[in-house]
């Protein structure tokens, strides 16, 4: 069961990568909007270390404003970036 719904504002948790993750450093602590739900799959942090039947979680596509990601962003204010997270990386935006 997915914890978040399309349209939810979420903040990416700033937790240590523990050597391997797919969560980009530039998204840590940033807030975006869930735009798509992805099927459950084994989290990269388990698959990477040979736990092919590891913890399964829902994944989410989150859309950020580029201006929120890069302090010196020089493009259009409407520009966005979408990337994917497993559920453990997201918290409800305060």
């Amino acid at each position: 069961m997915s914890r978040f719904r399309i349209g939810d504002r979420v903040t990416v948790r700033d937790i240590p990568p523990v050597f391997h993750t797919r969560t980009q450093g530039y998204t840590r602590g940033r807030t975006g909007v869930v735009v798509s739900l992805r099927p459950e799959w084994v989290i990269p942090e388990d698959e990477a270390w040979g736990r092919y039947e590891g913890r399964r979680e829902p994944f989410y596509i989150v859309r950020f404003r580029q201006q929120d990601l890069w302090p010196d962003y020089g493009g259009a204010p409407l520009d966005t970036l979408e990337t994917e997270f497993s559920e453990r990386w997201l918290a409800p935006a305060s």
Partner: peptide, 9 residues
């Protein structure tokens, strides 16, 4: 023996 995520790591 592995998956693509392990190769990536």
């Amino acid at each position: 023996h592995w998956v693509s995520e392990e190769r990536r790591r």
